[in-house]
Design a protein around this nucleic acid. Structure first.
Lengths: 347, 347
DNA sequence: TTGCTCCTCACGTCACGTGAGGTGGC
DNA sequence: TTGCTCCTCACGTCACGTGAGGTGGC
């Protein structure tokens, strides 16, 4: 039984024009009746259409859906495509959320004072625009050199080698695990988890871990090694969570891939997903200074090439955390490692 | 000192093309140099441009900004315009939030089972699409007969008169206040507050009240009568809050303006902004049944005319609340009043 | 002939981005 | 002459909505 376009549209809760548009974009190709040229939709077409309509409703752009549909629907790669699309949607959602938050603040203040001052409004708007531009720029860079993702991850690790050897890694992870001392079933997130070495350690201590990692390759390794960990594609400037979710967060040597402003935005993002009373651990290499004589010449530290290696903005991060209402505990640094522990007040 | 377009753009963090676009839309009109036709921006132009850029960053559409700029910037009506724009942005934001939530759920389930089933995805997508369509339809109706807002509000009150007299109102409000028994500084919200009779009562008991009302006229009355109450333009299908915010919520005789599906969506929205452990009071007239002989012939109950009067879907609402994790307490009904008290578990 | 369903252009939406082709003064 | 800044069209983006004008079979 084959349906005409209006019947198909009605059945799927969409419109004939939308269906023709999907066809125009190459997402489906129904047969046409030889007698009158009408489009005829069979079972396979309708299933395809159901996918298209559902994924559109979930916010995927048509181009992304086309890629998704080209995969075998039973393949895990379909999930990876959706994961990528989710990143984009989160980026937009966070930008919109921040804009609304600022608009709320502007309006509340405005009603109290019975008028609006352009300086206040422009200042509030400027801050969120800067944040949005940082997020969007990050996205563009991601898209541009997605193919180099593995190389870049390797590059960061490689670049860190002179500063962070195996013993320093081990010492850092041990210090984090000791301070966090996760209780059973506490929820924790490892931001920039890589293949999940620290994630695994905290998971083994009983925490219910989530890993966020921007490299799909790394993430699939992590998924195989640690099926009990929830793994999400995402980056530090747009974390894929809507609400405060975690009892603790760790970010170990991942801030080096962000420049100064991005690091502060990342701290804001971490704060957004951390519960009140939550604990935070940041770790980095203390001695890195790109362009300084210490940096090996074969390491490319130019951000436009995507393998940047930035120093930790320790002071700015600490000030930021204090202004966000954290108690900051600066533990003893050792072995060239910068560590920061903090507790979010309230709760 | 007058700036050229590139200088102005750089100073304001925008682009020449954007500025020309705003001019094309009639938002500003700089003088042009008589010698070479270059646009010249003076102080007044730059201030106007600052407003435009800031409000764009906050998410206002250009058409709305045009209206805002036509108001005296010191006038309170400017705030009212922004309030209207905020409603639209909240509607979009909520739709996007729900879509992301569904996408997260779909992906989580997908990774657990290692594959996606179209039936599951389509079901999740269908639910949020229906909700989004209800919200958008509500918006359209609001826009269509905004001018009739006062009449309509009056109409609902008028229509209720045969069922809810002064004593019944008083009894209902007393019952709600008694059950809520707000502690000092507890945060409460009155949804569909009208001119704020119940809001005032709860505020007088020490609660820190917020009023949500869709009629700007009503709201300005409320603001004058009760400056201590935070008053927000908004409707029951898209509440203007981003997070769980309130220790209790009341919705008194406002559900009658919503049809069956809208009432359930409103309950979802209320749940979204209520803290764990929060209390909820819903009130309505028990006996209303549009089209029944009891409804006076001069009351228009057709929803397409914007002055609908719908019966409370008591059973469906109760089931919905239970499925959302509420303990429902059905108090003794009296005087033809339907009352529902509920407590959100957790917290 | 009217009414119905389908068809194919093709323009409109929203807020610009991105050239293309041209001008005026150093 | 080159380089710079500005100008005015005008098309592209994204996912369709909305006619306009026409067809085929009852």
């Amino acid at each position: 039984m084959r349906l005409h376009i209006h019947e198909a549209a009605k059945k799927l809760g969409t419109t004939p024009r939308a269906i023709r548009f999907y066809e125009e974009k190459g997402l489906l190709a129904p047969v046409k009746s030889p007698e009158n040229g009408y489009r005829l939709y069979d079972e396979a077409d309708l299933t395809r259409l159901r996918w298209i309509v559902a994924l559109r409703d979930l916010g995927l752009p048509v181009a992304a859906i086309k890629e998704v549909l080209d995969e075998d629907p039973d393949d895990v790669r379909l999930l990876a495509r959706l994961d990528e699309a989710r990143q984009e949607i989160y980026r937009e959602w966070i930008n919109l959320s921040q804009a609304l938050k600022s608009l709320d603040a502007v309006l509340s203040a405005g009603y109290v004072r019975r008028k609006l001052a352009i300086d206040d409004v422009a200042e509030a708007a400027g801050r969120i625009r800067d944040a949005a531009m940082l997020r969007d720029a990050w996205r563009d860079r991601m898209g541009y050199d997605r193919l180099a993702a593995d190389y870049r991850e390797q590059a960061v690790t490689e670049a860190l080698r002179p500063y962070v050897d195996e013993r320093a890694y081990e010492w850092t992870h041990a210090a984090i695990a000791q301070w966090l001392d996760p209780a059973a079933d506490e929820r924790g997130v490892d931001l920039g988890a890589g293949t999940g070495r620290l994630t695994a350690r905290l998971s083994a201590l009983g925490a219910q871990m989530t890993a966020v990692e921007q490299s799909a390759e790394m993430l699939s390794v992590l998924r195989e090694l640690q099926p009990e960990v929830e793994a999400k594609l995402g980056n530090l400037l747009a974390l894929p969570f809507q609400e405060p979710t975690f009892d603790f967060a760790v970010c170990s040597f991942a801030l080096h891939s962000l420049d100064a402003r991005q690091q502060l935005l990342a701290v804001e993002e971490i704060d957004r997903v951390l519960l009140k009373g939550g604990r935070l651990c940041l770790a980095g290499a203390a001695a890195i200074n790109p362009g300084s004589p210490g940096v090996p010449p074969d390491i490319d530290v130019r951000p436009d090439r995507g393998c940047a290696l930035f120093p930790i903005e320790a002071d700015a991060i600490e000030r930021q955390l204090i202004s966000l209402g954290y108690n900051v505990i600066q533990p003893t640094a050792a072995k060239g490692i910068w560590l920061l522990f903090a507790v979010k007040r309230g709760g």
